[in-house]
């Protein structure tokens, strides 16, 4: 039981963050808040990948005498790409929010929907 909770605590954090992020995306009306939720959702996946690559007792993957056990660098490299994608998505999302604020005068989703339905 302790193994399940303590031994896998990274994965528990991943699941909690994922659900928190997902909930924020779905429940918040404020566009910036839903972007923050989206970010938390993505971050949970980053942690998942980083956890996958870690080898217990392993060092950084450097070609050097005496280093036998090292962590798998590939998931870390992969997630670097995904982090870049996440940053660009956030940047684009925020840019859209700025334009929405200019065009609608609000960033509350329900008010935007109301204005969309009126015109």
């Amino acid at each position: 039981m302790t193994d399940l909770i303590i031994g896998l605590y990274n994965y528990w954090i991943v699941i909690i963050l994922m659900m928190v992020g997902f909930y924020i995306v779905m429940s918040r009306q404020n566009l910036v808040k839903s972007l923050i939720g989206l970010n938390i959702f993505q971050t949970s996946v980053f942690i998942l990948y980083i956890t996958l690559g870690k080898v217990t007792g392993g060092t950084a993957p450097i070609l050097e005498k005496g280093i036998k056990l090292y962590s798998n660098p590939l998931p870390h490299v992969l997630i670097l790409t995904a982090i870049v994608v996440g940053v660009s998505t956030t940047a684009l999302g925020l840019a859209l929010v700025v334009r929405i604020k200019e065009a609608y005068g609000t960033i509350e989703e329900n008010e935007i929907n109301r204005m969309d339905n009126e015109s």
């Binding site: 995306v25 566009l31 839903s34 972007l35 989206l38 998505t89 684009l92 999302g93 859209l96 929010v97 334009r99 929405i100 065009a103 609608y104 935007i112 969309d116």
Partner: peptide
Amino acid sequence: LHAAFQYLV
């Protein structure tokens, strides 16, 4: 803009 944002999310 709103459509693009929804699609983005």
